[in-house]
Write a protein that binds this DNA or RNA. Structure first.
Lengths: 186, 186
DNA sequence: CCGATTATGGCACGACTGTGTTATCAAGGA
DNA sequence: TCCTTGATAACACAGTCGTGCCATAATCGG
């Protein structure tokens, strides 16, 4: 038997290189060669794990969702329900550098997905996952059913968008979120 | 004097070609040659009105904001204040094909702006314009000051984002908006 | 009619792209 | 030790990209 490589792990490693390129140079600069250089492998080696550039991009986008959901699953915030909900939502929004990079990747894929049905599918899954989270959080709050979940989802998405657009500071976004949660409680 | 061309009009004409390319093929397909072919001019002619590709993109993005604000300025919806506010907001959200194209262009530029400071500036202006609109609408409603404006802005952005992501139908988004406006009135 | 000036089209350059193909390398079973 | 087989690197290929350059066409004051 020749040298054996953990394909799944290698694919994740290459996806991480894609993220770094996007975070540093923007999504327009993502090419096979750029990712190869960033990862330290050759472009030929890349082709062993991803047949095309589109496949590489789609996997990198899926990984963003997967990592975020795993992070939230492992999260076990203390305190009363409202504080727990707040903690989880803060974990989703682009408030610090790491999550900002994640969000910029998501937005980049949204733009790409507008012209590429395969990427659009991945993008829809990402949004569905966030909605599911909002739904479970709304249930945790006790107050209201799907109406609250939808409102919360739209609010979180809107605030995230405005942070990324440079229109809202992270602090202001958190204040907005707190105001809404306070209304829900009152 | 040689043949004189209205530069501003020609630039607007070329920007419209950029929009068509984005709407049809996605933002990744925007190139000097593609826009030249779409507009019917040669790439050399394009260079007379835009020195670089970035300049062309920035102008095309600015034009989106300009057209939208002009459309809203000329709008004079009938009925009570709440219906007027509703009509204006419906004009902003990507509910039909035309506005969907506008929104996809805006999102594309948001993604591009994440890696290009010049485009980021244009993007911020766009968001500021929408916020100003929300502020004036909130004042028109009489109820509440900047807090309502910020909430409304976040909600409209979030709903628009979810429509574009394919997660929300236009009808559902309108229902969400109506629910919020009803809460404001009650 | 002429020349000054602007608009325009066409082309060449170098760099970059995605995608194949091919050769080399490494590692473990026979 | 050899040989099979997967992993990897290197390269070739045909395109496309942005951009600068130059010749030509069009136009109007003189």
């Amino acid at each position: 038997m020749p040298k054996l490589v953990d394909h799944a792990a290698r694919r994740r490693e290459l996806a991480a290189a894609v993220w770094r390129v996007i975070a540093r140079d923007g999504v327009a600069e993502v090419s096979i060669r750029a990712v190869a250089a960033e990862s330290g492998w050759s472009s030929g080696a890349l082709r062993h794990y991803f047949a095309t550039r589109g496949e590489l991009l789609a996997f990198a986008c899926e990984q963003v969702t997967e990592r975020a959901t795993a992070r939230i699953r492992d999260l076990d915030p203390p305190g009363p329900p409202r504080a727990q909900v707040r903690a989880v939502l803060l974990e989703v929004m682009p408030l610090d550098t790491e999550r900002r990079i994640e969000a910029s990747i998501s937005f980049a894929f949204l733009a790409l997905g507008l012209g590429d049905p395969a990427l659009a599918r991945v993008q829809r899954q990402q949004h569905a996952a966030l909605y599911e989270l909002c739904r479970s959080l709304a249930a945790q709050l006790g107050a209201g059913g799907e109406a609250v979940a939808r409102r919360l989802h739209a609010l979180v998405d809107g605030l995230s968008l405005q942070i990324m657009a440079g229109h809202l500071s992270p602090e202001a976004a958190v204040a907005e979120l707190d105001a809404y949660l306070a209304e829900l409680a009152g």
